[in-house]
């Protein structure tokens, strides 16, 4: 079994990656605020390297501690690829709808609420994931393709699918940030998970990023 330091990122690379995420997420937050007319704050991203087998437990403990329970999962494919999870507080669906679909409130009365909630959160998760991943891969001079968002409710631990790229013995890079929609006082978590298989291309992209500042 490989040691995490051999196959994943060294401290300098992690710091660079954090810097890229800071720029990307800051830019994503600013643009999101412009697009949805609500001031969005993104926390300083946190990077962790852990065994794939530990990811579900880690995410569960992080999210459950705050009573978070709705989850949107989306894969992104390219040289830089992985899984993104957007986790929302249970019961925030109507508030989120008012941000993203202000004219659609009539749907709430006439449609089955659960199905509607699922669709709203899928679209919101899609925008949040797309904006952060999009800005990040742009800085890394990469491009990715997204799978359609998948909504997961209930026991997230059992339902999180990390795909074939996440062999339980392998190391994975996890990034966490918190979105906060200020006026609505809603927060949501965003996790980006990359398997070690993208490390080579990520290291290359990070080197290219340094070069611009050398």
């Amino acid at each position: 079994m490989n040691d995490s330091n051999d196959v994943i990122l060294d401290d300098l690379e992690i710091d660079t990656f954090k810097e890229i995420m800071n720029i990307a997420f800051g830019s994503a937050a600013a643009s999101l605020s412009d697009i949805i007319n609500v001031y969005v704050v993104l926390s300083v991203p946190n990077v962790k390297i852990m065994k794939s087998a530990e990811i579900a437990d880690y995410i569960k403990s992080e999210a459950k501690a705050c009573g978070y329970n709705n989850l949107v999962e989306q894969s992104f494919i390219g040289n830089y690829r992985g899984v993104a999870l957007s986790i929302f507080p249970c019961g925030s669906e109507r508030e989120l709808l008012s941000i993203f679909n202000p004219d659609k409130e009539s749907y709430i009365e006439s449609d089955p609420l659960n199905e509607l909630e699922m669709e709203i959160l899928k679209e919101v998760g899609n925008i949040l994931i797309g904006s952060c991943v999009g800005k990040m891969v742009e800085l890394l001079k990469e491009s990715v393709t997204f799978s359609p968002p998948r909504f997961i409710r209930g026991d997230i631990l059992q339902n999180i699918s990390l795909g074939d790229a996440f062999d339980s013995d392998h190391w994975a890079i996890i990034m966490k940030t918190v979105f906060h929609f200020e006026e609505k006082n809603i927060s949501s978590y965003l996790f980006l998970i990359n398997s070690h298989e993208v490390t080579a291309s990520l290291k290359k992209a990070l080197r290219n990023f340094w070069k611009e500042y050398e």
């Binding site: 994503a28 899928k122 679209e123 925008i127 797309g130 999009g134 742009e138």
Partner: peptide
């Protein structure tokens, strides 16, 4: 702005 893909159900 983001190069994201939007899925409209």
């Amino acid at each position: 702005t983001f190069g994201t893909v939007i899925f409209l159900s």
